[in-house]
């Protein structure tokens, strides 16, 4: 079994998806620990990816694969699976590492299936036991448990890494040789027709600039109860934000959603009320200077990123806090 690692980078517009270099850092670390080489691949239309491949050539990599074809100008799951299956056959890695992006979610499981494998997805870390196979950690129960996975059998091990789990600035510089790879592409095998990306309505709320945010999650229980947090936000002079389920239910507009599919915020204070702290929420608010979390469950993952954690019933704590803030402001 090969010990070499292949990292599949993701582009975004004319540049990189921000998580690509986190995956590259993970790939270099994995290669070092299993005793193999690390290579990277960039997929797209040949002319468009040439400057990106050149940039990768400045990293510590065995090979930089520039996987180019006109049919790869726009992302499709079929196109990516077709091209990458051939690349894996050519490069023969033991491990393929991806960033766990929405795009990777869309095609990596199909690529793994085509090769009789299973993607070990959304990995937060790994360790390599002496002389053994790597142990990959992923979350169960929305972060309440950690599960350790090992790949069995002699085939390729496919892994995607969670946002924020590896540091992009840990990528080692060096020199890599760029190799152009032209997969045999079949236009008939691309069954979906993708449209251009668009944004729904113009956003009227810009949470990214708000210095203080009070954010509410499903712990609030009912729409009528939102009043309790609205009063807190008002007393604090804060913007109101929410986790996805609150916006899904239509209790607050979509534009107040924080997380991977909503807004990314970096306030001085983020006060999370009745939010469990799923990774898709955390990626949107990890940049906050101070996080205060109010949750009745002492094991809620939100406490992992909180500076101050209040274990209690929000229906008791929030009104008491609002009252105290008002009293403080009244002097």
């Amino acid at each position: 079994m090969s010990r070499d690692v292949l990292v599949v980078m993701q582009t975004s517009g004319a540049g990189w998806h921000r998580m690509s270099f986190e995956a590259l850092a993970a790939g270099q670390k994995l290669a070092a620990e299993v005793g193999g080489t690390c290579s990277a691949a960039v997929v797209g239309e040949a002319g468009a990816i040439a400057p990106l491949a050149k940039e990768l050539a400045g990293k510590k990599l065995a090979t930089v694969w520039a996987v180019g074809d006109a049919l790869l100008a726009q992302y499709t799951a079929d196109g990516w699976v077709m091209a990458l299956q051939q690349l894996v056959a050519e490069a023969k890695p033991g491990f393929v590492v991806f960033p766990h992006t929405y795009e990777v979610r869309d095609y990596a499981p199909a690529l793994a299936t085509r090769m009789g494998e299973v993607l070990i997805g959304d990995v937060t870390g790994f360790s390599v036991p002496e002389g053994g196979r790597p142990v990959f950690v992923r979350q169960w129960m929305q972060g309440k448990l950690n599960a350790e996975y090992q790949h069995a059998g002699g085939g390729v091990c496919f892994v995607s890494v969670q946002a924020g789990s590896f540091r992009a600035d840990a990528v080692e510089d060096g020199a890599g040789e760029v190799k152009a790879f032209a997969p045999k592409m079949d236009a008939g095998g691309i069954r979906t027709k993708p449209g251009e990306a668009f944004r729904e309505a113009a956003q009227t709320v810009d949470l990214s600039a708000a210095p203080v945010i009070v954010s509410v999650g499903r712990g609030i229980g009912e729409q009528e109860n939102l009043e309790v947090v609205k009063e807190l936000a008002e007393a604090l002079g804060a913007e109101l934000a929410a986790s996805r389920p609150i916006c899904d239910a239509g209790w607050l507009p979509m534009e107040r959603q924080v997380g991977s599919s909503g807004q990314t915020v970096a306030p001085k204070l983020y006060l999370a009320v009745g939010i469990s702290g799923a990774i898709q929420h955390l990626v949107g608010m990890k940049g906050a200077k101070t996080v205060i979390a109010i949750n009745k469950d002492v094991d809620a993952p939100i406490f992992e990123v909180a500076d101050i954690g209040v274990v209690g019933d929000l229906f008791e704590v929030v009104p008491a806090l609002t009252k105290a803030i008002r009293a403080q402001k009244a002097g």
Binding site: A152, G153, V311
Partner: peptide, 25 residues
């Protein structure tokens, strides 16, 4: 036959030191 194996499940260990508050509201 499983392609991946779950070898261990455990509660996560806290990495960041959170100041935890309890008591009356």
């Amino acid at each position: 036959k499983r392609v991946d194996e779950v070898v261990k499940v455990s509660p996560p260990t806290r990495v960041k030191r959170t100041e935890m508050l309890t008591g009356t509201a």
